[in-house]
Structures are given as C-alpha cells and as structure tokens.
Simulated assay, not measured.
Amino acid sequence: MAGDLDGLGYRDKNVVVTGGASGMGEAVARILGELGAQVHIVDIQQPKVDHAGYYRCDLSDFDQVRATAATLKAIAPIHFLFPCAGLPPHIKGALYCMRVNYIGTRLLVESLLPSLADGAGIALISSDAAMGWQKNIAQSLEMLSISDPDEALAWVEADPERRLRDGYTTSKEMLVVWVAKAAVALGNERRIRFNAIGPCPTKTAFMDQSADVISQEFLDAWPYPSLGRIATAEDQAWPLVLLNSPLNGAVTGAFLYTDQGFATGVMTGAIDASFMMGSQRQQA
C-alpha cells in the first residue's frame, strides 16, 4: 500500500515509535515499515509488527525511561520520533495516566534529543479531549516550566483536584501546550519540527479497555461527519505519518484535529455537544 510513497522521506531512516505494540502506534509502526523505515519500537509489550529493534519500557518508570533513551543512542542519528503511547485514567488511576501520557513521554523525548538528527521530526498523539486547552493555559505553562519529572509529579500531587482533574484531559492538554512552546526553540536551534494530532473516538484496544466508562450508546451518538463511522487506528496513523514527513517543512508547533470535524464543529455550533453531558470524554 505504501510502496510508491518514497517521497514522504522515510525510506532507510531511523524511526522510534512509542506504543508501537498496539492501537494507533502499531498502525504507525506498520505504515513506516511499509515506507522502508528502520522502525524501533518502545513499548511495555512485545510488538507484533516487523521492527528493527524492540526496547521494553514502562513510561511510568522514569529510571527505565532514561535507560531506554541511553540504549537508543546506539542507533543515532534518529530521524523521526513518534510518541504514540498513552492510556486512560481508569486503568491505573488519574495520576498514573498523567505520569505516562505527559511526564514520562516528555522525559523520553527530551532524553532522546541528543540522539536526534538536526532537522528531525517529532509527531505525537494528543486527543480532541484537549480542545479546551486554551482556557487552562496559565496552569499548563506553570507545569510545563517544571522539567524534572519527579518535581512535576509532586507539583500535581500538591493540588490534584485542580492540577490533575481526570488525568486524561489534563495530560493531553499538556502535550498540546508542550508541543506549541517547545517547537519554537527546537526549530530555531536545530530545525527539529514538533507537532501533534488530536484524534476522536477510534476503534483500538484503548477504546475496548474503556468500554466500562464509555458506553456504546455514547459512541453511537457521536457525530462522524467525514467517515460516517468510528475511526480506525489506520485512519489516525496516516495523518500522523504525513504530518511528520519532511514535505511538511513549514509545519511545526501544530495541533491537527483528526476528529472528523468534531472540535471545530462544536466551536462553531455546527455540532451540538449536549449528548456528552454526564458522559466520559476520554476519546482518543
């Protein structure tokens, strides 16, 4: 399927994908392999797709994260990084969710920066659950200023009701704000591009794990104007792969909604979001 797309710039390049053992990350890893990349997967589970290397790592364990980044130095230069790992709060709680989705992810990316090639691309998965990130910008920037992961965790724990909320939405907002701010320095100093996508409900193992808090009735009520159905992992993987391609050289610091028009539809009143009242919003 991807054999005639060499122009995207992935052939023979070193690529790291976190969360590449399932869901959107697995789809990303598969597509990149079809595009000729040397795909290195970081995950807590053994990946099923073809890969050049596998590095077992729990993003909630900061020592493991640092050790994994040190091991990945051996494949430098890394040309593309795809942080796709993430989980909902009901698996191990809101704090654990924040620890993995934002704090551990940020630690891995920042620890890998010395191994990234100048001009590299980083593209991660946030969520359209972060569509209200602007209204929480002051608090998000306060957390963003804390680079040490243990200190960031302690800051959240000091006022969890305000700083953590459900864990998922807050962590996804943090990813968006981090991308938006860090992209400037990364671009100016090393021409590294940094972007994010914001998926809608997507049929993955993540969604299956959320079945006890996200009802089928809720999913059936969701508007799917562009596809007419719930998105698949591949529907989300392709925009991420395309976004990180060098062909998008002028795009950095972007948050691309890959949500079938949901966020902008709500913002403009084209979509009535009242069906979400009282329902869970852990969508991606």
Score class of each variant (00 low, 15 high):
Gly3Tyr: 11
Gly9Trp: 05
Tyr10Trp: 05
Val15Ala: 05
Val15Lys: 00
Val15Glu: 07
Met24Ser: 03
Leu32Arg: 00
Leu32Lys: 00
Leu35Asp: 03
Gly36Trp: 09
Ala37Val: 01
Val39Asp: 10
Val39Thr: 09
Gln45Thr: 02
Gln45Tyr: 12
Gln45Ala: 10
Asp50Ala: 15
His51Thr: 03
His51Glu: 09
Ala52Asp: 09
Cys57Lys: 01
Ser60Asn: 06
Asp63Ser: 07
Gln64Val: 05
Thr68Ser: 15
Thr68Gly: 10
Ile75Ala: 02
Pro77Glu: 01
His79Gln: 10
Pro83His: 02
Pro83Lys: 05
Ala85Lys: 01
His90Cys: 07
Ile91Gln: 14
Leu95Glu: 08
Leu95Ala: 11
Tyr96Gly: 03
Cys97Asp: 08
Arg99Gln: 15
Val100Leu: 10
Asn101Ala: 13
Asn101Val: 11
Tyr102Gln: 14
Tyr102Val: 13
Ile103Thr: 02
Thr105Gly: 08
Thr105Val: 02
Ser111Pro: 15
Leu112His: 08
Gly119Thr: 05
Ala120Ile: 00
Ala120Ser: 14
Ala123His: 09
Leu124Asp: 00
Asp128Cys: 10
Asp128Ala: 13
Ile137Arg: 08
Glu142Thr: 07
Met143Cys: 11
Ser145His: 11
Ala154His: 04
Val156Ala: 04
Glu157Gln: 15
Asp159Lys: 11
Arg162Phe: 09
Arg163Cys: 02
Asp166Pro: 05
Tyr168Val: 08
Lys172Trp: 01
Val176Cys: 12
Val177Ala: 06
Ala182Pro: 07
Glu189Arg: 11
Gly198Gln: 09
Ala205Thr: 09
Asp212Asn: 11
Val213Asn: 12
Ile214Phe: 03
Ile214Gln: 08
Ser215Gln: 03
Phe218Glu: 12
Leu219His: 01
Leu219Trp: 06
Ala221Tyr: 05
Tyr224Asn: 06
Gly228Ile: 10
Gly228Lys: 07
Ala231Met: 08
Asp235His: 15
Ala237Ser: 02
Leu240Tyr: 05
Leu240Gly: 06
Leu240Asp: 01
Asn244Val: 08
Asn244Ala: 15
Asn244Gln: 12
Pro246Ser: 11
Ala250Arg: 14
Thr252Met: 03
Tyr257Ile: 01
Gly261Asp: 03
Gly261Glu: 04
Phe262Lys: 04
Val266Asp: 14
Thr268Ala: 05
Gly269Ile: 04
Asp272Arg: 03
Ala273Cys: 06
Ser274Gly: 12
Met276Ile: 13
Gln280Arg: 13
Gln280Tyr: 02
Gln283Lys: 11
